[in-house]
Design a protein around this nucleic acid. Structure first.
Length: 398
DNA sequence: CTACCTGTTTGAGCATCAGT
DNA sequence: ACTGATGCTCAAACAGGTAG
């Protein structure tokens, strides 16, 4: 039974990673309480919490967050501190992500306990009203969507949010209907390092960091300016002027991301004449990841590849052409017009392009080898339908 | 003339401090 | 741990200037 293996696995992982996680089985429904590293429930019956060593500025433990892009888009308007809480939630559930929600029973409740020092720097004196305001705001955040059958749903992400006065403990309960959305990653998600992300103090820097992390494996991210404005939530009148986008979004965000996170980022504007129509970001990893983080990154890469291959396999010819056209436009400027034409119009080439693109976009191919790998995969495959093996699964520093 | 840049103002929210 | 006050930062808006 697939569902019964989940609690065992997650609690085993939690034990291995030294987290405080309590799994209980109630009415055949799985309920999990997550405790952050700074707060732990004591063994008494009443609701009482013990504080553990608060996080220090010297936090070097790599802790991964995997954020589904659909969630990122749905929650683009979170304030800085709300987003920190939301990231902490994603970090706590990373051991049970990748699961197909249909394979497990509905969750009774996922409850999270954090300490206010998890989201506010150690040396900052915080006020109760301040924390209460954050909780009040986060408790109001809602998402909505409509299914193909026309069912429109609107619900609050954290219907129950509490602050335990005197202990500084924040409790969040995730809406059960949203749990699949938090757990199901597909192949479209951002993966980044929690403690670097928590240092960001600008809303735009936080948002942009998620997007840049999503495309970091590619080393490059090209986005239409209007699309960029939309995903940044910068749709007000003042952002019709590019200078405002540059001054208020790009420059502060670039500076913070480069200063605080594991990414080295820069951007150039592209367009006709002086009119900026799109942005091209260059993304590089600063340092070699720790062993544990490397293992998780490798695991993620494999998962992403599998999901991407499945997605592409279900594409119609037309969808493959759209997919390939966008990739060629954004990432393969060195290909000639004739080569691009051949790829888009020869089903055999198109297929191989799509598959090779899955390997590249999931980080299986060394960053400096994308063009060569793609050329070889499309035009000079080693076997009949065989792609050359990616040379390196590790992403390089350059 | 258009698109972008620079400087200024304003208000909201965040960070910080002194004191309880 | 907590409160209340204060100063700072950031987002937003606007006016006027400049490059192409």
């Amino acid at each position: 039974m697939e569902s019964s293996s989940l609690p065992a696995r997650s609690s085993r992982n939690a034990a291995r990673k030294g987290r405080h996680q309590q799994v209980t089985q109630e009415n055949n429904q799985l309920a999990i309480d997550f405790y952050s590293e700074t707060v732990k429930k004591s063994n008494t019956k009443s609701q009482s919490f013990e504080l553990h060593s608060a996080q220090t500025n010297e936090m070097i433990v790599k802790s991964i967050v995997r954020e589904p892009m659909r969630l990122l888009h749905a929650l683009m308007h979170l304030t800085v501190l709300e987003r920190r809480l939301y990231w902490l939630v994603l970090n706590q559930i990373r051991n049970i992500q990748y699961r197909n929600p249909d394979q497990v029973k509905p969750y009774g409740a996922l409850t999270f306990y954090f300490h206010s020092s998890d989201i506010i720097a150690n040396d900052v004196k915080w006020s109760v009203t301040y924390i209460k305001d954050i909780i009040k705001l986060l408790g109001k955040r809602a998402v909505d969507w409509e299914t193909e059958e026309g069912v429109y749903t609107h619900l609050t992400v954290f219907p129950t949010a509490q602050y335990i006065r005197g202990k500084g403990v924040i409790m969040l309960q995730l809406h059960p209907l949203l749990i699949p959305g938090f757990l199901e990653l597909g192949n479209n998600f951002a993966q980044f390092e929690l403690y670097a992300a928590l240092k960001l103090t600008s809303e735009y820097a936080q948002l942009l960091y998620s997007y840049l992390s999503r495309h970091a494996w590619r080393g490059k991210w090209v986005i239409d300016l209007n699309a960029f404005k939309e995903i940044m939530g910068a749709t007000s009148k003042s952002y019709e002027e590019f200078s405002n986008i540059r001054i208020r979004i790009l420059e502060p965000a670039m500076e913070q991301i480069s200063k605080f996170t594991d990414l080295d980022v820069s951007y150039v504007t592209m367009g006709v004449g002086r009119k900026v129509s799109s942005l091209e970001f260059t993304i590089a990893f600063k340092e070699v990841n720790s062993l544990e983080a490397s293992r998780e990154i490798e695991e993620t890469s494999k998962h992403k590849l599998k999901e991407a291959l499945e997605t592409v396999a279900n594409y119609t010819l037309e969808e493959k052409q759209i997919f390939a056209h966008a990739s060629l436009r954004d990432y393969y400027s060195q290909f000639t017009a004739d080569e691009k034409h051949q790829i888009l119009n020869t089903p055999e080439f198109l297929n191989r392009f799509c598959i090779a693109e899955c390997y590249i976009s999931s980080g299986q191919v060394g960053r400096d080898k994308h063009d060569a790998y793609m050329r070889k995969s499309v035009f000079f495959p080693t076997g009949a339908n065989q792609l050359p093996a990616p040379n390196s699964a590790k992403k390089g520093k350059n």
